[in-house]
């Protein structure tokens, strides 16, 4: 097990390293580093001073090591617009994004798995066909468009829920979160549902496929032959088998939820790091863009690693293979 974790950690490091190269060369080779790293308002003298200060006159590999050194100590430069360290800005917007992503993940699992279970158990019922049609739509509809429709329906037309902003936040343990206030909850409803939509469809499909497969297996028939109630057969024998892979895949989607929240945050004016990124791109605030990219890469790698490790702990079959290996 320890060997596995260490190996997985090494892999993660390699990926982060590779991505840092890609981002760095993205900025320095594809893009124009002077334009990217130095405020466009600077005059000629300032520009040259900045180039020297940033080390842009040095050879590229030296620059890369400087970049890595900065990144490792959390120094991605200062935002042109806010004048604050880029990393600090992003970190201060991160809780709002994480809160949104986790709520969406929760919704996806809480809505998608029961619907998928139903569709898998009664594949021919009209309700199941409806669920599956809905999930195809959920896959094809662009998130931003569904978000617009949600605002139109629930906020403008029915006036049930607020359309923009995060609402009041309260403190829970050490976190500042809107999940603990009524106002905050009503604000997070629409964006979280919007962000969750694609993942609900995914959860439905995964669960349904898993249930259909498990229902045909001998172990389910054997469980029925033991005289167990359908409830126990489904909730223990079927669900236990498919929950592990489904939850694993859903866990892996957390990274993409954080990435996707860029769209949702823009539509619902949610003050998270996705919104910060879009504003930064539009205002050419490059240090923030670079810092965001590195952080999102880090997130992805971390999440993949944690989910992998959890999976190997949870599933007795994988666990054994690891022992054998």
């Amino acid at each position: 097990m320890t060997v596995f974790i260490i190996r997985r950690l090494m892999q993660a490091l390699v990926v982060v390293f590779l991505m840092s190269i890609i981002v760095f060369f993205g900025v320095n080779v594809i893009g124009d580093p002077v334009a990217m790293l130095i405020s466009p308002d600077a005059d000629q003298a300032e520009m040259e001073a900045a180039i020297r200060r940033l080390g842009l006159d040095r050879p590229i590999h030296e620059q890369y090591f400087a970049f890595i050194k900065g990144a490792a100590t959390g120094d991605f430069g200062r935002s042109f617009i806010f004048g604050e360290p880029a990393l600090k800005l992003i970190l201060s917007h991160m809780p709002a994004t994480l809160e949104l992503a986790f709520t969406a993940l929760f919704l996806a699992v809480a809505i998608g798995i029961p619907l998928g279970l139903y569709a898998g158990l009664y594949p021919d019922s009209p309700i199941s066909k409806g669920i599956m049609a809905g999930s195809i739509l959920g896959f094809s509809l662009p998130t931003f468009w569904v978000g617009l429709m949600m605002i139109m329906l629930f906020a403008v037309h029915l006036q049930w829920l607020p359309a923009t902003g995060r609402g009041d936040t309260g403190t829970f343990l050490w976190f500042e979160t809107s999940l603990v206030t009524r106002d905050g909850l009503s604000h997070i409803m629409l964006p979280a549902l919007n962000l969750a939509l694609l993942k609900i469809s995914l959860a439905i499909r995964l669960t349904r496929a898993g249930v259909r497969e498990a229902m045909g297996q001998d172990y389910v028939k054997f469980a029925r032959a033991k005289g167990l109630s359908p409830r126990r057969v489904i909730l223990v024998h079927v669900m236990k088998n498919i929950l592990i892979p489904v939850v694993t895949v859903m866990g892996l989607e957390l990274g993409s939820l954080i990435g996707f929240s860029v769209v949702t945050e823009t539509i619902f004016a949610w003050p998270g790091m996705g919104k910060l990124l879009i504003d930064a791109i539009l205002q050419l605030d490059r240090p923030i863009v670079v810092a965001y990219l590195m952080i999102i890469v880090l997130f992805f790698v971390l999440i993949n690693m944690i989910v992998d490790i959890l999976y190997s702990i949870l599933d007795p079959r994988v666990r054994l293979q690891e022992q054998g290996a």
Partner: peptide, 20 residues
């Protein structure tokens, strides 16, 4: 595989962030 572990939308967003 590495690239596919990131969603396409995120890759595209990263690129336009760099490219304009």
């Amino acid at each position: 595989d590495l690239q596919l572990s990131f969603p396409a939308s995120l890759v595209a967003l990263m690129l336009v962030a760099l490219l304009g």
